[in-house]
Write a protein that binds this DNA or RNA. Structure first.
Lengths: 255, 255
DNA sequence: GCAATAGTGTCTTTGAGACACTATTTA
DNA sequence: TAAATAGTGTCTCAAAGACACTATTGC
C-alpha cells in the first residue's frame, strides 16, 4: 500500500511489518561514574563471550518490550551495583552505526549516571566481573573497551565535565551532607585539575541555590589538625548563575 | 543457552533472536529550524494517515538496515526540502517511551538541523504537505503535533537556544556571508528577545574565531538609508570564549 | 538637510583569580 | 607551640551592559 514513506515515520510504518525486515535490537548502555579516593571511576563489566571476550565493557542490555529507556538503564545499573536511588541519570545519546556490533544491527541508547561512592558494589547481577575502574589511564591499564564504548565513555566524560560548569550536579557524587572541600574534590577529580580553594569556596557559597548551609560541622575526624568544616546540602537551583568556569582556572601550574 | 543477560548487552544478545521477540522499530525524527522574516520556523509535515491523521508532525522515518542514524536524518530531511549541504545536523536524543506510537514500539532518534532560509522548499518527497511553520504560537495556530513531537520540538528549541550561547552555530542560519545585524537577528529570533545592538556588535567581533572579516560590504540595498555593513564569514572557532549570555540581556524592557 | 543603519568610546558594575590574611583544630 | 585545614579581605583585571557619540548612506 505504501510504497515509499509518505508523511514521515508513521506513514512509513503504516504499511510495514518490521518482522519481515532486518532486525534491529535496541539496548541501553550506562556510563556510571563515581569518585573513589579522589579519582573518577567508571563502572565496567568484563565480557564473558565473543565478541570482545575478556575485554571490559560498559554495563548494558536489551530494552524490554514494555520498558521505558531510562527504566532499562536503571535496571541494568541495579544489576551490577547496589545503587537503588539518589543517583542522577540522564540520557547521553544514541549510538547506532551499522557494524558497531559485529553480529547484528544494534542501536544503543547511552545513559550517564552519577553516584556517590558505593563501595565495592558488584550487585546481584550474574555478570562475571564488574568493577569500578579509574578513568585516568584506563586504556593503558585495561586496553580498549568493547564495541564503541570508548567513544561512549569519552562523550560521557565530556558531558559530565560540561554539566559541572552550569549545574549543581557535582553534589550527586557526594553524600547528602558534604563540605565545600569535598565538593571541590569532585570538580578536581572530574576536571582533572586543581582549583583555587579560597576562590572556589567563596564562589560556591555565593551562587544562589548551589548549596544550603546546615548548621552542623564535620566531626573531629582523623586529620592531623584543622578547623572543622561547615556541612552543606545541595541547594534548590538546577542551573548555576553565574556558572563555574573551566576556562582559565586555579592555582598556577607552571613557573 | 543464556537464560539471563550475563555480561550486558552483548552477553544478552548472544543467545537471542530478536525476530522471535516483540518488534521494535527504530526511526529518526528531524527538527529542522530556519529563520524566515525574522521569525524562527520549524519544518513540519501533515499526516495523511491514522493515527494523528491531519495533524502536523516532524519529518522522519524508518532507519534503513545499513544506514547510519545521522544519514537517515539527512535523507529524511532531503525528502522534504531542498537542503543538501551546508546545514548543521546534530543528535538531540532518543525518544522511546512505550506507547508513544499507538501501533507498536517505536524508538526514535531525534536530530536537530539548522539551515539558512531555503524558500518554500517542499522538496522531492511525496509527503502530501510539508511547510515551514513559525515556532512562536505554534500550538495555537496548528494544534498539538503528532506523537510526542511537541516534546521533541521543545527539547530541540532549548538545545538550539543553549548552543547559540557557547558555539558560533548562529551562522548556520545564515548564508555564507552575513552582517553582524543579520547575526544579531538570528539570536533575537531564537532567543525571542531583543539584544543591545552596539554591545552585540563589539562582543561578536571581539570573541576570537567567531566571525571572520571579509573586506566587502553590503550592496546598496533597498533600505531608506544607512551605512553599508561589513560582511563576515563564520570563523574557525567551535566554542566561544567567552560565551554570549542569555542571562541578563539587552535593551531595557520595562520602565 | 533628516532619517536610518553601522560602528566606536567610555563609564559603571560584576565577577574571576591572586594572594595575604584570620580562625579553628590536632599533635 | 607548629602544622593543617577552613574561611575572609581585598586587590587587579576582564568583560557585560548602558549610553553617548561618530560614520556612512539614501531620501
Amino acid at each position: 500500500m505504501v510504497a515509499e514513506h509518505p508523511g514521515g515515520e508513521a506513514g512509513f510504518l503504516a504499511g510495514y511489518d518490521p518482522r519481515a525486515y532486518a532486525p534491529v535490537a535496541v539496548t541501553v548502555d550506562v556510563v556510571a561514574l563515581t569518585i573513589r579516593g579522589g579519582e573518577l571511576h567508571v563502572l565496567c563489566v568484563r565480557r564473558g563471550q565473543e565478541p570482545f571476550r575478556g575485554a571490559w565493557a560498559l554495563p548494558g542490555g536489551f530494552v524490554r518490550p514494555d520498558e521505558d529507556l531510562a527504566d532499562a538503564a536503571v535496571r541494568e545499573l541495579a544489576e551490577e551495583t547496589s545503587v537503588r536511588a539518589g543517583l542522577h541519570l540522564e540520557q547521553l545519546g544514541g549510538y547506532g552505526a551499522p557494524g558497531r556490533d559485529p553480529r547484528m544491527r544494534v542501536v544503543s541508547m547511552a545513559y550517564v549516571a552519577l553516584a556517590p561512592d558505593l563501595g565495592e558494589a558488584v550487585g546481584g547481577g550474574d555478570a562475571g566481573d564488574a568493577s569500578w575502574l579509574p578513568v585516568a589511564g584506563l586504556a593503558a591499564k585495561v586496553g580498549a573497551l568493547a564495541f564503541d564504548h570508548d567513544q561512549i565513555l569519552a562523550d560521557a566524560l565530556e558531558r559530565a565535565r560540561a554539566k559541572l560548569e552550569y549545574t549543581p550536579l557535582a553534589a550527586a557524587f557526594l553524600p547528602r551532607e558534604f563540605t565545600i572541600a569535598q565538593l571541590r574534590g569532585v570538580y578536581e577529580a572530574v576536571w582533572g585539575r586543581e582549583l583555587h580553594a579560597a576562590n572556589f569556596h567563596r564562589k560556591v557559597v555565593s551562587v544562589p541555590g548551589f548549596v544550603t548551609d546546615t548548621d552542623s560541622r564535620t566531626e573531629s575526624g582523623g586529620a592531623r589538625g584543622g578547623r572543622r568544616a561547615r556541612l552543606y546540602t545541595r541547594g534548590a537551583a538546577t542551573l548555576l548563575h553565574p556558572a563555574l568556569l573551566r576556562g582559565t582556572p586555579g592555582p598556577r601550574e607552571e613557573g
